[in-house]
Design a protein around this nucleic acid. Structure first.
Lengths: 149, 149
DNA sequence: GTACCTGCAAAGCGTTTGCTAATTC
DNA sequence: GAATTAGCAAACGCTTTGCAGGTAC
């Protein structure tokens, strides 16, 4: 995602109007590496703009995605997650806590070819597993008498 | 997924009971390469078992997944899709018609490392774009007078 | 002033759950 | 006979939509 001032300019050029709600969403997303859900964006922006509605958040996120300034992560699970980092990169997804981490690996495009005649627009690479924190919790040091539940 | 007879045996060994509904779902999935949704499985099985319910389909799919005999594709979009092919492979996903094709590429695991200390259980590679058919429809041969709508 | 946008509420969709009756073993 | 499973329907979570009023330009 562009820095907010330039992003605002881009939006205006695209014929969009700059509302305080949109600006607040932009500011929350800028530099955010949490890959928030729409709900999370809503909660955060709601603090400063108590009147904002979830529908507006969805609208703005859709708009940013259409402009190519935001990625929608297809990680499965209930809620969609959004990523203001649109440069090519991959993701690590912890199945226990849901945390998503950016990975800027060496080999973004694996040597896999699509079906004959198709057009490949994007290659999505997702590493799925347990993050360091959850690994510790999953396999706790066995102590006498204690058993995990 | 195992062939049905062996799958049935596995299920029984796991303490599960073999109902006609389950067997019908197994038979529909065997060799299926369409990556059907739960809804699609339901529609197909419903023809022979008009009494079956969606909940039963979901239950059975969950069970198969837990046994490792079925993969749940996290492709985003509304409905989850299921894959009886559980050997490591990738997918091509057409964003226009939704078709999903299996890809058994040369390099299943891209040279990307997970975050320090994490445990990577699975690497998911998805190629996203337009299939050959949709490519033709998306960019139709320009003819005089005709314009795409 | 005129679109576009917001907020609200309701609807939509896919999935899960709670319960009773039926079935498998 | 005992315990799992099926069916039904309602509840659920996330997202989208329709509309009336408000706001940026």
């Amino acid at each position: 995602m562009l820095p907010v001032p330039q992003l605002v300019e881009r939006c205006r050029s695209a014929g969009m109007r700059m509302t305080p709600q949109r600006r607040a969403i932009f500011e929350f997303l800028e530099g955010n590496t949490d890959h928030p859900t729409a709900e999370a964006v809503f909660r955060a922006v709601h603090r400063r703009h108590p009147g904002i509605s979830l529908a507006t958040v969805y609208n703005t996120l859709d708009t940013l995605e259409r402009l190519g300034e935001l990625d929608r992560l297809e990680l499965g699970g209930a809620a969609e997650r959004f990523d203001p980092e649109v440069r090519p990169h991959q993701h690590f997804h912890c199945t226990r806590c849901g945390r998503v981490e950016d990975l800027f690996g060496d080999v973004p495009t694996p040597a896999v070819e699509g079906p004959v005649g198709c057009r490949v627009d994007r290659v999505r690479v997702q590493l799925v597993g347990l993050c360091a924190t959850c690994r510790g919790r999953e396999r706790p040091a066995r102590r006498r008498g204690s058993s995990p539940q």
